[in-house]
């Protein structure tokens, strides 16, 4: 439900990261995003058919505070010459990494 979703978002330590270049790698994302704290995992968004990166990913931190800092200091700055957008995500579920490309 909407309420449950909102609750998840309030405690989440996962961020959805969008408007990446298709060529941006997990390594690059790791370098930038780990400047805000220890990263639990990065899940690259993949094209449903080609299984290649398609411009988004999920970054999960260990703590809420680190994720908050990421929103403060990384959201809206550049990686690979593109302005990255980050937003709260309710938490990664298997299957969600496949986008439309």
């Amino acid at each position: 439900t909407k309420a449950e979703q909102d609750k998840l978002l309030r405690v989440s330590t996962t961020l959805y990261v969008g408007s990446l270049s298709f060529y941006t790698t997990e390594e690059q994302i790791h370098e930038l995003f780990s400047r805000c704290g220890d990263i639990r995992r990065i899940i690259m968004g993949l094209d449903k058919y080609k299984k290649t990166p398609c411009g988004f990913c999920f970054v999960e931190y260990y703590t809420r505070a680190d994720a908050e800092n990421c929103l403060r200091y990384i959201n809206g700055t550049r990686l690979d010459d593109r302005i990255v957008r980050t937003d709260w995500d309710a938490g990664f579920i298997e299957g969600r990494q496949y986008g439309r490309g």
């Binding site: 400047r35 805000c36 800092n69 403060r72 200091y73 990384i74």
Partner: peptide
Amino acid sequence: LEIAYGSILI
């Protein structure tokens, strides 16, 4: 955080 200063400079 170090990156806070970097982002303020940007």
